[in-house]
Simulated scan of single mutants.
Amino acid sequence: MEVPRFASGLYVGSVMHHRVKPVRHRLSYRVFSLLADLDELPRLDRELRLFAHNHFGLIGFHDRDFGPLGGESPLPPREREIRDLKGWAEGQLAAAGIEGGGPVRLLCFPRVLGFVFNPLCVWFCHRRDGTLAAIIHEVSNTFGQRHAYLIPAAAGPDGLVRQHCDKRFYVSPFMDMETAYHFRIRPPGGQAGERLAISIRQTDAEGPVLHASLTAERVELSDGAILRAWARHPLMTAKVVAGIHWEALHLWRKGLAIRPRPPAPVHPVTVVRGADLTNIAPTRS
């Protein structure tokens, strides 16, 4: 089997949301995502003409869009720009008592012509031997806030990672806070043409409320692949943001009441240990 040029890659597929109560509502749209190996970002910037790291490009990756480097970070703007994302992730693992030291790969929507909004980014954090140690689920809302759930990870015999946590962060104005997330993930392995699958089931005390999923196929990262993905989805960021508000309008018209927005969690990362959740302050790396 031919070794891929990069551990990073594009994943082309679709996002689906299916709300089952108190009203039924479903949406689905095509997207492409970037799996960015954080160690490779300088190399991607050098070798790909259509990819940009921390500057303008057709598609790009800006450090300040993730982790503690933007949103409500207490760091001054200049310090946000120079903080190392992998160092931040390793610091969070160490503070949680989880072994790291291996690759950190971040699945996200890339910037498209300088613009991006990521409802969910998934950080795959590995040990030195390459095995998956933890996943950081980083959630953003349309109010400029961001929060992350750090959960230890181990694949089962079927290759799937199963995780769960209680909701701690306000996302949709039409969703109660007293719910839980149940994740089922087929992590990326880096093989050409592989299938990536992320499924999220949101439940309340009475059962399922929402099912969401991302299914995608890996495309090797090249200028040609970038150009083809952009040509199929030239306004992807605008589509994501517009879609969120359009679907919110539909939910409001179906009679759902807007839930009040509580303050964001004091600390930007919630560490999940089994069924127990402990908030920790961000580490300095």
Rank of each mutant, 00 (worst) to 15 (best):
Q202K: 08
D176T: 04
C121M: 11
E90C: 06
R128F: 13
R184E: 14
S199T: 12
A205D: 04
G87Q: 09
N141P: 14
L160C: 11
E81H: 12
V116Q: 06
Q145M: 06
G144L: 15
H164N: 07
L93F: 06
D158W: 07
R83A: 02
L132N: 15
P208V: 10
G114N: 05
Q202L: 13
H211P: 02
A96V: 03
V112T: 01
I200Y: 09
L150A: 14
L150K: 08
I136D: 13
P157G: 10
A192R: 14
S140M: 08
F174D: 00
R162S: 02
F124E: 12
L214M: 07
C121N: 09
L85M: 08
G144F: 11
I135R: 00
S199D: 15
L210D: 06
R128W: 05
N118S: 14
F115H: 11
P77C: 07
Q145N: 13
W88H: 02
T142Y: 00
E178D: 07
R201E: 15
H211Q: 10
L107W: 15
G130R: 14
A153W: 11
A89Y: 00
I151Q: 00
G91M: 12
H211M: 02
S140T: 15
N141C: 12
L93E: 00
V116N: 01
C108K: 08
A205Y: 04
E194L: 06
E79G: 01
A154Y: 13
P77H: 02
V104W: 04
H147R: 03
H126K: 06
C165A: 09
R184V: 10
V161Q: 14
D129M: 08
